[in-house]
């Protein structure tokens, strides 16, 4: 249903936080995390997931495979 941030990769730069259209990203002890309940994979807002696009470290904002993909509500 959502993206997640790989904690060991995150530099804590905060670039992703203000870009999220759903306010799903929050700071936790110097690094950042995504609230899976709020993340919509940016569907309905942008063509690409904003956290992925802005993050300076590749493969840090990734699909959380433990959850089903997000589906826009009808």
């Amino acid at each position: 249903m959502a993206y997640k941030i790989v904690a060991s990769q995150c530099t804590g730069c905060s670039a992703c936080e203000p870009e999220c259209p759903n306010g799903a990203i929050y700071e936790k002890e110097g690094i950042f995390a995504i609230d899976p309940e709020k993340c919509t994979e940016c569907i309905g807002f942008f063509d690409e997931p904003q956290c992925v696009s802005v993050c300076p470290v590749d493969n840090t904002c990734v699909i959380d495979k433990s959850r089903p993909r997000y589906k826009a509500k009808k």
């Binding site: 530099t11 730069c13 905060s14 670039a15 203000p18």
Partner: peptide, 10 residues
């Protein structure tokens, strides 16, 4: 002072 951690380019 280091108050600006985010960047928009690489």
């Amino acid at each position: 002072v280091a108050v600006a951690p985010a960047c928009n380019i690489q």
